[in-house]
Simulated scan of single mutants.
Amino acid sequence: IGFCSGTGDMLKVVERYTAARPGNALERFLPALRAVVGGDSHEGLGDAFTEAWARVADDTAFRRAQDAERDETYFDPAVARAEADGLSALGQFVYYDAFVMHGYADAKGTVGFRTIRAEAVEAADPPSRGGDEEAYLDAFLDARVRAIRQEPSHSDASRVETAQRVFVHEGRLQLETPLVWKVYGESFRIDGP
């Protein structure tokens, strides 16, 4: 279901969408979404919710609601933190991916971006503090892999080890092409514009 990490994200998207398009197919699920936020329950959602989400997936108002939530919750804070740490385009991507996968703060059974970054800063100075960016990103990715391995739903660290870390070691701090990587056993390549 889109980029959403959990029911809290879904709730915000549906609230945004409903404000833009009252009476949409997801609006009736707002009470159930509010009731399950912060827990493991999906009571009141299930197949009917998934089917309604699929029905509205191509609605431009729904897409705008998802984009706005993505930007506000993940993209904008990740880029702002990366810029404050003096990181390049690669660092911004690394931070954004961590925000999406882990969220900002720790939750029950998870390690969030804030903790991952704190561990990285203990191991290496970011460029904003005079540190070497590649060394700092390696420290961040080390902390991230430890976090991934603590979470049963995210135990595969290939998105870090065979993509992001490869770019760090190749010195592609501005994501210079060609970019060649693997994720979850699949190979990818971007040759440029």
Score class of each variant (00 low, 15 high):
164 Q>G: 02
181 W>Y: 13
180 V>K: 13
183 V>T: 12
159 R>L: 08
172 R>E: 11
176 E>M: 10
158 S>H: 00
178 P>G: 11
160 V>W: 00
184 Y>S: 06
162 T>K: 01
187 S>T: 11
158 S>Y: 01
183 V>P: 02
185 G>S: 10
185 G>R: 13
168 V>S: 09
158 S>W: 00
165 R>K: 05
173 L>C: 12
186 E>R: 12
162 T>N: 01
172 R>H: 15
177 T>V: 14
167 F>R: 06
184 Y>L: 10
173 L>N: 12
172 R>G: 10
158 S>E: 03
186 E>M: 04
178 P>E: 09
157 A>K: 03
165 R>M: 07
158 S>G: 04
181 W>D: 02
169 H>G: 14
169 H>W: 06
176 E>V: 08
182 K>G: 03
157 A>H: 05
175 L>W: 14
187 S>D: 09
168 V>N: 09
159 R>H: 14
187 S>A: 15
168 V>H: 13
163 A>Q: 04
158 S>A: 03
161 E>H: 03
177 T>M: 12
160 V>G: 00
187 S>G: 14
162 T>A: 02
178 P>K: 01
188 F>A: 13
178 P>I: 10
161 E>Y: 08
178 P>F: 09
160 V>P: 00
175 L>R: 10
163 A>Y: 07
166 V>S: 03
175 L>C: 15
188 F>S: 06
184 Y>K: 08
170 E>W: 15
157 A>D: 12
157 A>F: 01
188 F>W: 03
182 K>L: 04
161 E>S: 10
182 K>W: 06
187 S>C: 14
177 T>C: 14
171 G>C: 09
157 A>N: 07
171 G>M: 13
159 R>Y: 15
180 V>P: 01
184 Y>T: 09
188 F>G: 04
173 L>D: 06
174 Q>L: 13
170 E>G: 11
180 V>T: 07
162 T>C: 04
187 S>R: 09
164 Q>C: 01
188 F>N: 02
166 V>W: 02
168 V>Y: 07
186 E>Q: 09
